[in-house]
Design a protein around this nucleic acid. Structure first.
Lengths: 155, 155
DNA sequence: TATTGTTATACTCTATAACTATA
DNA sequence: TATAGTTATAGAGTATAACAATA
């Protein structure tokens, strides 16, 4: 009944990641992926993907924001913002109002329905965030600071 | 010449992220995205995407590994592993050897050419990793530990 | 000319389900 | 029946480039 020379099985604790195990980028991807899925699972019941949720939240917090500024805030190209806006708009979660001062700009704002959806979503978001916060614990501020610096400084 | 009521311009420091600014998941995505792009830019000159690089590295460190175990190591479904393996194999960076003991299994190993590519890539990988390490600094062990815990525990 | 947003398009990444072959 | 890997397929997410309207 001795332990035999198993060939890299199941839970993969026997896989040697080599230098990858020390690579921040790799673990960043795996963690992001896990967090993304967990959020999607919760919020998916209300049909709001993480990216759409982020956009809706930014619009809620910045009434009148344009798509360019929104894209910069969530780190997406304006051409990637368009379909998000269209989807949110189709669902009447946001309003689009052409700026009188500059008729190229569209001022985005959240609707009552949008706010209601955010409210319904709130407990799930809170659970998700609390999960992450619990894992990260007292280091949260430092942890977030490092993530922001990575985003800003890696050029 | 007083500061006027600018409408959320350029570098977007005026955008209020609201609760998103405290959301670990959001910053995880932005940081991962930035790191991924930075790596792709460097390694792209040698035609090796981050995902392919990770796979090649795991194969190098685990000669004879199968695609299932590889997928678990890099957190991808076996059906997502197949095209990676095909690409690496077509480029003769890896060898595929049917296991004699279990003819369903394919034992993967890196070739001389694969090793040579990893060697050519090494300085770029080192630069990338060093960049991240510099940003994260002395907290690296703790930072990596948190990323791993997020991946493991968020269920 | 420059800027805001849209469109056409294409590419990458990924997974689910059904499949083959082996066990 | 179960497992290793493949295939067919589809969907999400994203960007580049060209464009229209407006500035």
């Amino acid at each position: 009944m001795g332990v035999r020379k198993r060939e890299l099985p199941g839970g993969s604790p026997l896989v040697n990641l080599g230098t990858l195990d020390e690579a921040i980028g790799f673990h960043l991807r795996v963690a992001q992926d896990a967090s993304f899925r967990a959020f999607a699972r919760r919020a998916g019941q209300h049909d709001l993907k993480p990216g759409h949720f982020a956009a809706l939240l930014v619009i809620a917090n910045n009434p009148g924001i344009g798509q360019g500024a929104l894209g910069r805030a969530i780190a997406r190209d304006k051409s990637s913002v368009t379909p998000i806006i269209q989807s949110l708009s189709r669902r009447e979660l946001i309003d689009r109002l052409t700026s009188a001062a500059d008729r190229r700009r569209i001022q985005l704002s959240i609707t009552k329905a949008g706010r209601a959806l955010l409210r319904r979503l709130a407990p799930h978001v809170r659970n998700h965030d609390r999960n992450l916060d619990t894992i990260v614990g007292a280091d949260k501020a430092r942890f977030l600071g490092l993530l922001k610096r990575i985003a800003d400084e890696i050029s």
